[in-house]
Simulated assay, not measured.
Amino acid sequence: MSTQINGALDSTAAQIGDLLVELSHKIHANPEVAFEEFKASRWTADILSNANYDVAFGVAEMETAYVATIGNGDLEVAICAEYDALPDVGHACGHNIIAAAAIGAGLILAPLVEELGLKLSVMGTPAEEGGGGKILMLNAGLFESIDLSMMVHPAPSEFDRMPCVAAQHLEVEFLGKESHAAAFPQLGINALDAMTISQVAIGLLRQSLYPGEMIHGFITHGGEAPNIIPARTAADYIARAETLNQLKTLVPRIRRCFEAGAIGTGSELKFIHKFEAYSEFITDETLAAIYRREAVASGRTISTSPTPAMRASTDMANVSMAIPSIHPILGIDSLPAVNHQPEFTAACITQSADKAVVQGALAMARTIAAVASDQTLRAEFINGKKRIALRQQMAS
């Protein structure tokens, strides 16, 4: 990559730094949960539209999803923006940083798309925290022509990838029968007892789980009043395993734990599947190596491993199964706070977080420019050689 291109990228990043930080703080102050990111999606899309991006809103039948495109080059690249918050704790996973960095990378590259031969898409992807917006966009064919994709994500440490495992949400409901808890308990069917039996069975199941397998969840509805036999209870659980194949073995075992509760109490059991499983992540090592180099050049310090040790799941992993992708971590000064804690929410608008927004945007932009400027790499992505290698890696 030429010194002239690097200089142009660095110069634009410096010019838009205040805009990106303002956007990050604005999204942080207005947290919106999955599929309800009406403000964040519009704010980010409007900035891209003002920078001459062609914005298609409401894609994949989601009101808060969009694809913003600029350029007509033969190398097609997608940068993914997330902007959904968590219930109660707001942006405790720093999606305000993710969104602002993605928009920043798009703005930094926009003046150079013709010179670099790029068709660049910034994708607004809803509901990463539960709903799988990227999976819906993937299934709708919106990644079909994309040659490579990327995003960044904040955490307590800096790394060139996020250690990701496969995950499946399990929403369950038990239906029993109401009765007076003191006068006529024998006439009721206690749905809370069914949930209790299920949780005990899951606790016992943990002893025989394979390394890396996890089960966690909570009761979302436990009854109506202490003097009424609970006729309805509900819970939301997540099963995790190293791969989708392992998950396919684990989930039926968990289902049987809930079935035990239904059988033991005579309650009716319902399983509610709202979205597809998140897969394991396949990091494209070529992209990761380029990102490491360009992130350091952008002012970042890359660790040899995430600290503290972390494992997570993301719908970006499903994209990585279809398209060469990376998902680097941006370290912010949050410790001892970690993701999904309210203290991490506060850390996501600190000076360290603001620096991560701008430098993360620049690191992605420089990575994409480096690929576009290398004729050998460019050909490998455009001609599908990287996709073939990805399929071979999955098969092995």
Rank of each mutant, 00 (worst) to 15 (best):
Cys93Met: 11
Leu86Trp: 06
Ile290Thr: 07
Ala85Tyr: 07
Gln393Met: 14
Met162Thr: 14
Glu61Gly: 04
Ser325Trp: 10
Gly217Glu: 02
Leu120Gln: 11
Gln359Thr: 07
Pro87Ile: 11
Gly90Cys: 02
Lys355Arg: 05
Phe281Val: 13
Ala100Thr: 14
His221Cys: 06
Gln246Asp: 15
Met195Ser: 12
Leu138Asn: 07
Ala363Pro: 02
Gly212Trp: 11
Cys80Ala: 14
Asp147Phe: 06
Arg292Trp: 03
Asp354Gly: 05
Tyr66Val: 03
Arg292Pro: 02
Gly360His: 07
Ala295Asp: 01
Ser305Thr: 12
Ile97Asn: 12
Met137Thr: 12
Gln393Tyr: 11
Pro252Glu: 09
Ser325Asp: 08
Arg378Val: 04
Asn96Asp: 08
Ser157Asn: 03
Pro31Asp: 04
Thr265Cys: 07
Glu276Thr: 02
His25Met: 12
Asp18Arg: 14
Leu120Cys: 13
Arg232Ser: 08
Gly264Pro: 01
Thr196Gly: 11
Asp284Arg: 07
Gly331Glu: 15
Gly223Cys: 09
Glu280Asp: 15
Ile388Met: 04
Ser157Met: 01
Phe143Ile: 05
Met195Gln: 14
Asn227Ser: 15
Ala322Lys: 14
Ala92Cys: 04
Arg293Gly: 08
Met195Glu: 13
Ala8Lys: 15
Ala395Glu: 00
Lys177Thr: 00
Val77Glu: 12
Arg253Thr: 10
Thr350Cys: 04
Glu22Phe: 11
Gln15Ser: 15
His273Gly: 07
Ala363Gln: 01
Thr265Leu: 01
Leu192Lys: 04
Pro87Lys: 10
Glu213Leu: 13
Thr283Phe: 11
Val371Tyr: 01
Gln168Ser: 10
Gly58Met: 00
Glu173Pro: 05
Met137Tyr: 11
Ser325Gly: 09
Gly212Gln: 13
Val319Gln: 10
Ser352Gln: 02
Gly222Leu: 00
Leu86Ala: 09
Asp333Ser: 08
Leu107Cys: 14
Phe218Arg: 09
Gly132Asp: 05
